[in-house]
């Protein structure tokens, strides 16, 4: 589904990604961990198409297409979803209208009709129940005055409604208490299938107790320096990142 090959990216002349290689297949969950400043969020932003980042080398293939050649909106319509670490507030745009617009933009791209109002309502109610979201939520302005937990749940609600093939969760656990974390993780797990894949970017292991990864990668200094299964996450939790850093240093 996704192949990242030797990806280099910089922002304002500072090189942040320095040769990332990663392959994600349908049905898989990959966790990307790493200390602050290692390039985790940059990787997410580059995949989603944020303009501030300049890709200097490498390629990303998504379902056979050159992802980096696509506009951000077309990446989304092709099935890439980024759950933002810091979702943006847009006063005056209700959640309901926003999600409906996004769905219809995707449908238009795929040559489909707009979603019927009843179908939309039925679907969103179902997904809201899954994420334990109150129905009053729909009429609220997007992310305006939302608590941290509400913002993150709203991200996962959008994910549930847009049904992406590849979801990238950027520090979705940051700022969540344990109850909210469980609800969000439960939502993500229920949306999992053998057709779609998830990349979970996180600093801490805790989220991975609930969203169990097939692979864990350690990002450090813009490179994936270590990969393993879920036990790697536990090891990082117990020992911190210093040993990884030392390993990298001794190899250099």
């Amino acid at each position: 589904m996704l192949q990242i090959k030797n990806l280099f990216a910089k922002v304002e002349d500072k090189e942040i990604l320095r040769g990332i290689n990663l392959e994600v297949k349908p049905g898989e969950v990959h966790a990307i961990m790493g200390p602050n400043g290692s390039g985790k969020s940059t990787l997410a932003s580059v995949l989603a198409g944020k303009e501030d980042y300049e890709v200097t080398q490498g390629e990303v293939i998504f379902n056979g297409k050159e992802l980096l050649e696509l506009e951000p909106e077309d990446r989304a319509r092709e099935g890439v979803f980024l759950a933002f670490q810091y979702p943006i507030a847009i006063p005056g745009v209700t959640i309901s209208n926003f999600i409906k617009t996004a769905i219809n933009e995707k449908r238009k791209y795929l040559g489909e009709e707009d979603i019927k109002a009843v179908d939309f309502l039925k679907k969103i109610k179902e997904k809201m129940a899954l994420l334990e979201i109150d129905s009053k939520f729909l009429g609220r302005s997007l992310n305006e005055g939302f608590s941290g937990g509400e913002k993150k749940r709203n991200e996962i609600l959008q994910m549930a409604m847009l049904e992406p093939q590849l979801s990238i969760l950027d520090e979705t656990d940051s700022g969540l208490d344990i109850d909210a974390l469980k609800i969000v993780a439960n939502g993500v797990n229920k949306l999992k299938s053998d057709q779609n894949a998830t990349i979970v970017i996180t600093h801490y292991q805790r989220l991975l107790d609930y969203i169990v990864p097939d692979y864990v990668h350690v990002l450090y200094n813009g490179q994936i320096v270590k990969s393993g299964d879920k036990s790697l996450a536990l090891e990082l939790e117990a020992k911190g990142y210093d040993w990884v850093k030392e390993e990298v240093a001794s190899l250099a």
Binding site: E71, E73, L82, I90, T101, A102, E105, L162
Partner: peptide
């Protein structure tokens, strides 16, 4: 710009 990108990342065209 941040709001524009957020919407684009949901599949909404820049124009829209």
């Amino acid at each position: 710009d941040e709001a524009m990108f957020y919407m684009q990342a949901r599949g909404i065209s820049k124009e829209k």
